[in-house]
C-alpha cells in the first residue's frame, strides 16, 4: 500500500507542479497571484477538446492551436483586467482576479455547458507496471512534461533577455521603468506564458478526468503547492507539487478510515496553514516577506 500511495502521490504531484508553475510565473513577474488560474486550465481543456471533436483536427495541431488561443487570451486578460491595476494595492489585484475567475467560469459554462466531456483517447491506454506499481501512461507524460518545463523555464529566466527583464520587473517596477523596460509589455508576456502553461495542464487533466467545471477548483487546490515551494521559485513549485501530492496521498490513505473519507482534500490546506505560520516564504522563496 505504501508504495502504491507513494507512486500515485508522485504522479498526481507532477500535475500539481505543472499548475503551480502558472502561479509562480505570474508572481515572479508581477508580484500578484492569479486566483483565476484554475479557469485558465478549464478554458485550455475546453478549447482543445472542442477543436479535436468538432473539427476532427489531430491532437498535436489541436494543442498548438489551443496554445495560440491561450496566448491571445492571456494578453487580452492582461490588457483588459490587469493593466488598470499596475501600481494599485495588492488587495485590489486579488479581488480583480477573483472577479475574473467568476467571469471566466460563467462564460465557459455558457459556451460549453456543465456536463462532463470526455477526450477521445490520445495517450496509450494500457497502464505501465513500474516495479509492481501500476500507473497509467498519461501520468508519465505529465511527469515528463513537468520536468521539461522546469528545465526550460529555469534556463529562460537565467539566460534570455526576456527572462532577465521579467525578473527585473518583479524586483522593482520603478527601477525597471527607469532602465527603459516596458513593464506593460513584460506583463503581457507573463500572462500569455502563464495562460499557455495552464492550457497544457488543462489538456493533461482533461485526458485524465474528463472536462467539467470542477477542473477549475484545482486552481485553488494548487495554491498550497506554490506557497510550499516558495511563490517565486520554479524548482520550488515542482518540488512542492511532488511533496504535496505524496503527503496528501499518504495521509489520505492512512487517515481516511479514521476520519471517514475526504482527508485528501483538506491535507494541503492544513499544511498550508502550518507553512504560513512557520516559514511563509516557502522552501525556496526569497525571504522578504514583510513583517509587521
Amino acid at each position: 500500500m505504501f508504495l502504491q500511495l507513494l507512486v500515485t502521490g508522485l504522479v498526481v504531484g507532477s500535475i500539481y507542479a505543472l499548475v503551480a508553475l502558472g502561479f509562480v510565473l505570474i508572481y515572479k513577474a508581477s508580484d500578484c497571484i492569479n486566483f483565476a488560474q484554475g479557469e485558465f486550465l478549464l478554458v485550455g481543456a475546453y478549447v482543445a477538446l472542442w477543436v479535436v471533436t468538432s473539427y476532427n483536427v489531430p491532437f498535436l495541431p489541436a494543442v498548438m492551436l489551443t496554445l495560440c488561443l491561450a496566448l491571445a487570451l492571456g494578453v487580452l486578460v492582461e490588457r483588459m483586467v490587469l493593466r488598470p491595476f499596475i501600481g494599485e494595492p495588492v488587495i485590489s489585484v486579488i479581488m480583480a482576479t477573483i472577479g475574473l475567475s467568476s467571469l471566466m467560469r460563467g462564460v465557459t459554462q455558457l459556451i460549453w455547458g456543465t456536463d462532463t466531456m470526455i477526450y477521445p483517447p490520445v495517450f496509450p491506454q494500457e497502464p505501465v507496471n513500474l516495479a509492481g506499481v501500476v500507473i497509467s501512461q498519461v501520468y508519465l507524460w505529465s511527469l515528463g512534461l513537468a520536468i521539461l518545463l522546469l528545465a526550460v523555464f529555469s534556463l529562460f529566466f537565467k539566460f534570455t533577455t526576456t527572462g532577465i527583464v521579467m525578473r527585473a520587473v518583479a524586483d522593482d517596477q520603478q527601477a525597471a521603468l527607469s532602465m527603459g523596460i516596458s513593464v506593460k509589455k513584460v506583463f503581457a508576456i507573463t500572462w500569455a506564458i502563464a495562460a499557455m502553461v495552464a492550457a497544457v495542464g488543462g489538456i493533461l487533466l482533461g485526458n485524465i478526468n474528463g472536462v467539467n467545471s470542477s477542473l477549475a477548483h484545482l486552481g485553488l487546490k494548487v495554491l498550497p503547492v506554490a506557497i510550499l515551494g516558495g511563490l517565486d521559485s520554479i524548482p520550488g513549485a515542482i518540488l512542492g507539487g511532488f511533496i504535496i501530492g505524496v503527503l496528501e496521498n499518504l495521509v489520505g490513505g492512512y487517515l481516511d478510515p479514521v476520519f471517514g473519507g475526504g482527508v485528501k482534500e483538506v491535507v494541503p490546506f492544513v499544511i498550508l496553514v502550518l507553512i504560513l505560520l512557520v516559514r511563509p516564504y516557502g522552501l525556496f522563496g526569497k525571504e522578504v516577506i514583510e513583517r509587521v
Binding site: G99, S102, L103, R105, G106, V107, Q109, L110
Partner: peptide, 11 residues
Amino acid sequence: SMQTALFGLII
C-alpha cells in the same frame, strides 16, 4: 452561468 459571469464582470 449568466449569474456567475455577471457577478465577475460587475466586480
